[in-house]
């Protein structure tokens, strides 16, 4: 392991997540692919029920090149702890223990196991690929689904604008454990993500990366815009790139001017029904959050 900055020019040519059956243009599979390219051969991965376990482990296929196992849905954090304990007991050194869980597997179902693992300061890396709903089972609302998004369990109609709840503030919930390292990222900013992965690999303690990952199938977006949409989400202020280290929050990107929210949202099938009043609610929530972040974060 070295401190050299990993870029597209010097990263390994080895593909650790290859031949998987994820939908075309899947942001989550890009997040897993890049993470494994940074962590390398000696990586042990655990994945709970979710898209990446569903597309990676289809018998008789095994799309992971490194060691990977499917964990119980709520038990990603505890399984990672167990894997680290096992490696310690066997005296196996220089390894990464990494979990890839979706937004439902992290913010809803797996939250207590994640909280426990952070509390025990396990040396593990937890990556949440956030595609903003339970996509693998057919687009059901999770607590990370944003306001106004249409899912099968938060339908849009005359009375409701889709999801009526805002996104759970999971990054700050994780940071509130006083975790060694936490960060948010987006597949639209891959270099920023690579930097954060390299940092997480060196942390002595728990690290958590929350990556915003587009889902063309669930969001009703063209497959080719997967990366540009994730970039736009950051530029419009609906998502943010930040880090938490040594008890302090740092904003990595401060857009001088936000990309128009309406234009960004209406590109997505799940937001097509939104009225101007709904978009105003989304903008107000965004402005409130950014005001707080700009005041209190570095």
């Amino acid at each position: 392991m070295n401190n050299k900055r990993i870029t597209v020019k010097n990263m390994t040519d080895k593909e650790y997540f290859f031949g998987h059956k994820a939908c075309a243009g899947c942001g989550g599979s890009l997040a897993v692919r890049l993470a494994l390219k940074v962590f390398g051969d000696r990586t042990f991965a655990a994945l709970p029920a979710g898209c990446m376990s569903a597309v990676g482990f289809i018998y008789p296929q095994m799309a992971f090149l490194n060691n990977a196992i499917i964990s119980t849905f709520p038990g990603t954090g505890s399984m990672l702890s167990g894997m680290r304990a096992g490696l310690d007991a066997l005296g196996i050194k220089d390894t990464h223990v990494v979990g890839f869980a979706g937004d439902g597997g992290t913010a809803d179902i797996g939250l207590q196991a994640l909280s426990g693992a952070i509390d025990r300061e396990e040396k593990i890396i937890y990556i949440c690929y956030d595609n903003e709903a339970y996509m693998n089972t057919g687009v059901q609302k999770s607590s990370l689904t944003p306001y106004g998004a249409r899912t099968t369990t938060s339908p849009a109609g005359e009375n409701l604008p889709g999801s009526v709840m805002h996104k759970k503030n999971l990054f700050e919930i994780v940071a509130a454990h006083d975790i060694a390292y936490a960060a948010t990222a987006s597949v639209g900013y891959p270099q920023d993500y690579l930097n954060k992965l390299s940092k997480a690999a060196l942390v002595e303690g728990t690290s958590y990366i929350h990556i915003y990952a587009t889902c063309p199938t669930g969001w009703g977006t063209p497959t080719e815009t997967s990366v540009s949409l994730a970039k736009e989400a950051v530029d419009s202020g609906l998502w943010y790139l930040a880090e938490y280290e040594n008890g302090e929050f740092t904003l990595n990107r401060r857009p001088k001017e936000f990309f128009p929210v309406k234009e960004h949202l209406l590109k997505q099938g799940r937001f097509k029904h939104l009225k101007d009043s709904d978009i105003r609610i989304i903008e107000e929530a965004r402005d409130k959050k950014w005001k707080r972040m700009l005041e209190h974060w570095k």
Partner: peptide
């Protein structure tokens, strides 16, 4: 467990 990592048996080219 019966296969090592990277056990691929089918291509994805028919998807596009």
């Amino acid at each position: 467990p019966s296969f090592s990592g990277g056990h691929l048996v089918s291509v994805n080219s028919g998807w596009r």
